[in-house]
């Protein structure tokens, strides 16, 4: 049993996100908080091979660029800088939709070594959506200057995804990053991110909802994460499923949903 859905492939999905790819290219999403040097990493990796436009239907700037590493060409998509992916702004929604629906071959999350705790909030949200994540701990030079040390090995172990330390402005660590991107996109490494344990109340809700969602067979969409969003009352995810997975939900269902949504968004 599953939802009726129009036939879709990765290619048509990418068209919906206005990502132009040739066959054989791997898609890499670049996420991160504002002020973490995300655009420095983007510029350093893609050089002059970039172009900008808008996300379809949104007045949010989209930048994409390409680069080669070894025998592989990559398309790097710069997502809007956000603190979270809980869809509280258009930027957050754009970033979330791309990571969960465009099915990138890898998602790179740039973090600021001097302010890791805040940045980990986003990292943890990304690893809930997809397993193919690389965490970049950038601005290590600033951290050194401020006498802040980050145990990258331990972070990798705790998160369960590859971690790369960089100083993007001077190029330090970028080769390592490219190698990790290559390995991940080629399927040579398969990260198993450590899931967040929620409190009993939340876990109970997840346990009730998740089995029902997995029966819907929504492709690669992470069921635990989707359950959380539904419990959370995040109705933008329903829009996303309709728009990107081509699932048609009945009007009565939608009006029910929007009613719920209105209650949440009292503002």
């Amino acid at each position: 049993m599953g939802l009726t859905r129009q036939s879709f492939g990765a290619a048509s999905l990418r068209e919906k996100f206005a990502i132009s790819t040739k066959s054989g290219q791997k898609i890499i999403a670049l996420a991160g908080n504002p002020n973490t040097g995300k655009s420095t990493v983007f510029n350093a990796l893609t050089g002059l091979n970039q172009h900008t436009g808008n996300w379809p239907g949104k007045t949010v700037l989209q930048a994409q660029g390409s680069f080669y590493y070894l025998d592989q060409e990559f398309v790097l998509v710069d997502l809007p800088g956000t603190y979270s992916l809980l869809a509280n702004s258009i930027e957050e929604q754009v970033a979330r939709d791309f990571i969960c629906f465009a099915d990138p071959d890898a998602t790179v999350v740039i973090t600021d070594a001097t302010c890791l705790e805040r940045n980990l909030n986003l990292v943890l949200q990304v690893t809930e959506i997809t397993e193919r994540v690389i965490v970049v701990v950038n601005l290590l030079d600033e951290a050194r200057r401020k006498k802040i040390q980050v145990d990258l090995g331990k972070l990798e172990q705790e998160l369960g995804v590859p971690v790369v330390g960089t100083v993007a402005r001077s190029g330090e660590g970028l080769d390592d990053l490219k190698q990790k991107i290559y390995d991940l996109a080629k399927g040579r490494i398969n990260p198993k991110p450590t899931m967040i344990k929620y409190d009993i109340r939340v876990e109970e809700c997840i346990n009730t909802i998740e089995p029902l969602i997995s029966e819907l067979h929504l492709g690669r969409l992470n069921t635990r994460w989707l359950a959380l969003r539904l419990i959370d009352g995040d109705m933008t995810i329903i829009e996303g499923i309709e728009q990107y997975l081509g699932v048609n939900l009945s009007d009565s269902f939608k009006s029910e949903v929007s009613l719920e949504w209105a209650k949440v968004q009292v503002n």
């Binding site: 603190y83 979270s84 809980l86 509280n88 702004s89 909030n121 949440v264 968004q265 009292v266 503002n267």
Partner: peptide, 13 residues
């Protein structure tokens, strides 16, 4: 705070 403001404040940590 309620609604969107609450969500944004939560997101800030």
């Amino acid at each position: 705070a309620e609604g969107l403001t609450r969500r944004r404040l939560l997101d800030l940590g």
